[in-house]
């Protein structure tokens, strides 16, 4: 990371770090100083103060979604908002804990607290992913775009099919099948796990096999290796060797692409939990506030 470019945790973000630390230290100070007459919790004057502060913080943290989509907004930069979101988001947990007075139970109040913690933990996961994955993605792509990787694979497939055309039909069938049964994307699970669901139909004595799983072209490579080992025709061996080379290159590009998709999937996936849970938290928070005021 260059100093001309600056991350959300960098120099500019520090001021929010100090703000968050200041808020937390001040609240702990107040908590230690005050002497509650009854049990500690939301019902005391400090409890109200802490609860109001935590609720306002949560509403402001949720507002990042709106700021991010207000593209013409002059209200700070999104990077600045994210810096503040990270540090002040972390401060919500200690403030909410003090608000609860370290007392928990099986009720809607603790549900709101648990959701708060879950959202913050997911946020930490997001920060870690954002800090680690982009650089690894960049190194993995080696200056190419995702589209270029897809095109490279299509190009290698087309070349392999052309080579196979001049060979016995079983090679032609095998290469076409490997091309047609290649799966670049896949389910969310496949993407996150980097699983390759591709398959291939290979010729067998007396017919064809059913589709065989062909992760990262391994099955096809093994079959081509087997055919090469059995070949006694010099011309044919040279062509099969070429198919092996093309398929190995395809495997390399495929691994790179799948890795890229896996990184991207993780960069996106945590947000699919972080945001809906935040709205869940908002609902629980409203229930918590309403129940406190109505049933008090």
């Amino acid at each position: 990371m260059s100093s001309v470019h600056e991350s959300v945790l960098g120099q500019m973000g520090r001021r929010y770090l100090w703000l968050a630390v200041g808020v937390v230290v001040a609240m702990f100070g107040l908590y230690g100083w005050q002497a509650p007459t009854g049990l500690p919790g939301g019902g005391t004057w400090l409890g109200y103060t802490l609860g109001t502060l935590a609720a306002l913080l949560i509403l402001w943290l949720l507002a990042l979604g709106a700021r991010k989509r207000s593209y013409a907004s002059k209200l700070g930069t999104v990077r600045g908002w994210v810096s503040a979101h990270v540090y002040l988001g972390l401060a919500v947990v200690p403030v909410a804990t003090l608000h609860a007075g370290f007392r928990f139970g099986w009720n809607v109040h603790t549900l709101a607290y648990a959701l708060t913690c879950a959202v913050v933990v997911l946020g930490i996961v997001g920060v870690v992913l954002y800090a680690r994955y982009p650089e690894r993605m960049s190194a993995n792509r080696q200056g190419r775009t995702r589209q270029q990787l897809v095109e490279e694979i299509a190009d290698l497939d087309a070349r392999a099919v052309r080579v196979a055309q001049a060979l016995p039909a079983e090679f032609d069938d095998a290469m076409r099948s490997a091309r047609d049964r290649l799966i670049l994307g896949g389910s969310a699970f496949d993407l996150l796990a980097g699983r390759d669901g591709s398959s291939v139909v290979l010729p067998r004595a007396g017919g064809s096999s059913g589709p065989l799983s062909n992760p990262y072209q391994a099955t096809l490579l093994a079959w081509l290796g087997d055919r090469l080992a059995r070949s006694e025709d010099g011309e044919l061996s040279a062509r099969v060797q070429e198919l092996l080379t093309l398929t190995s290159a395809k495997r390399g590009a495929l691994e790179r692409l799948k890795r890229d998709l896996r990184f991207q999937a993780w960069l996106d996936a945590w947000l699919y939990l972080h945001v809906p849970l935040s709205f869940g938290l908002l609902a629980a928070l409203l229930a918590h506030v309403a129940s406190v005021f109505i049933y008090w």
Binding site: V4, H5, S7, Y71, V82
Partner: peptide
Amino acid sequence: PACVRACPTGAAI
């Protein structure tokens, strides 16, 4: 520029 102001991570300058 909106592109820079909208970048959430500070990658774009």
